[in-house]
């Protein structure tokens, strides 16, 4: 473990990867909002998060699963605009939080480098 590469930073960077992947899946759902027969997908976010928090080694690639319990329209598409909008906002905020935490960590390190002075 180097100075920069702290466990917190490792986990945060994996969390950033996971949120970026999830935003891709959501963007795909939104792009296919009018494609007949398309079924909404999502990351298995909970299991992804568990693997991020537990393992120190490389995490498994995110698992994409079909979302269950959505109402299908007559054309076979079950993308729900509200759900996707909400999920997008959620991912965005998660990403933002993660970036903020990373910045704080970097700031802490640079403070240590500067012998605890505020500069």
């Amino acid at each position: 473990m180097s100075m920069i590469d702290t466990p917190l930073m490792q986990r945060l960077s994996r969390f950033l990867d996971a949120t970026a992947s999830r935003s891709g899946v959501i963007a795909n759902n939104i792009a296919n909002i009018d494609t007949p027969g398309y079924h909404a997908r999502d990351l298995d976010f909970r299991s992804q998060l568990t693997s991020i928090m537990n393992s120190d080694a490389q995490t498994t690639p995110p698992r994409v699963v079909e979302v269950r319990g959505l109402t299908e329209r007559p054309d076979g598409n079950n993308v729900n605009m509200d759900r996707e909008g909400l999920a997008l906002a959620q991912t965005q905020l998660q990403f933002q939080t993660s970036v903020a935490l990373m910045r704080a960590e970097i700031h802490r390190l640079s403070q240590a480098i500067h012998e605890g002075s505020s500069q």
């Binding site: 950033l16 949120t19 935003s23 959501i26 939104i30 996707e84 909008g85 910045r103």
Partner: peptide, 26 residues
């Protein structure tokens, strides 16, 4: 329907753009 779909996709672009900008902030 097309207009709403366009709007939805445009906001997804906006979200991705903000996330990229935040990474640059690092």
């Amino acid at each position: 329907g097309a207009a709403r779909g366009y709007q939805m996709n445009a906001s997804a672009v906006q979200a991705a753009k903000q996330m990229i900008q935040q990474s640059i902030e690092l």
